[in-house]
Design a protein around this nucleic acid. Structure first.
Length: 237
DNA sequence: CCATAGATCGGCT
DNA sequence: GCCGATCTATGGC
């Protein structure tokens, strides 16, 4: 056999609220073992999705969440979440236990990959969208799967659909347990990111002002860089 | 660098 | 029937 298999991040890691998991996933390693080889990438950008109002009373106990955000989620729920409308065939996995893979088709042609999160009691249908990562192992195979020549490493996994495609994610991964010890698709511990920044989520309708997108601000592998804090662009150095 | 159009189809009303 | 948790090519500056 090849290398010793590192432990998958355990079930408990994902049994926390989506914002906490989304932050904690930054710097962790997404791994997919394929016949063609091992694909590995460091997560640098995520988004948290909660559920409808009324299914999240446990948020009242949270003293580590911005009060405005907590109040909004308690009062209105998360209108951008696929679980906002209640159970459907597509979002059913979000209502199950944490640590499972949620894959969906977007714009008729792209797949996006999530991991289900949230406390078990009381339950809430949450997920974390994987938006960007830094390629570490199997770069050649990732490029082949992206099917575009001369792709720079920073363009390989810099978006949710790019990430899913390069990492070999298919609809067959819907409902896969990412915490299984022998599983091909899992997270490894890696090293948590040193700095984390929060911004509004990309491309959502509803909850546009909620700061539920998390990224490693100095990473060149994110889908969209953080807006410079100061004024317009510089010229030279 | 920025803005925009087109691709393409499953899920939900 | 409408529309989306996106990507890419193209054209302008």
């Amino acid at each position: 056999m090849g290398r010793p298999m590192a432990a998958a991040l355990p079930w408990r890691f994902f049994a926390r609220d989506a914002d906490v998991v989304a932050r904690d996933l930054l710097g962790r390693i997404l791994v997919h073992e394929l016949p063609e080889g091992r694909l590995a990438a460091r997560v640098v950008e995520t988004e948290a999705y909660f559920g409808p109002a009324g299914r999240n009373p446990h948020l009242r106990e949270r003293d580590d969440m911005a009060p405005g955000l907590r109040a909004r989620l308690l009062r209105e729920g998360d209108p951008a979440s696929h679980s906002f409308v209640g159970v459907t065939d597509r979002n059913r996995i979000m209502y199950g236990p944490p640590g499972f893979c949620y894959v969906y088709l977007i714009y008729g042609m792209h797949l996006c990959m999530n991991v289900v999160t949230g406390p078990v009691e009381p339950p809430e249908p949450q997920a974390v969208l994987l938006r960007a990562a830094e390629p570490l192992e199997g770069v050649e195979e990732m490029m082949r799967r992206r099917g575009r020549p001369n792709l720079k490493p920073t363009d390989l996994l810099s978006g949710p659909a790019k990430l899913a495609k390069a990492m070999g994610i298919t609809r067959a991964h819907y409902g896969v347990d990412m915490t299984a010890s022998e599983g091909a698709l899992r997270f490894e511990a890696g090293r948590p990111a040193r700095s984390v920044m929060a911004t509004p989520r990309i491309g959502v309708v509803g909850g546009e002002d909620l700061l539920l997108r998390y990224l490693v601000p100095d990473s060149p592998h994110v889908s969209r860089p953080v807006k410079p804090a100061g004024a317009g662009r510089r010229k030279g150095s």
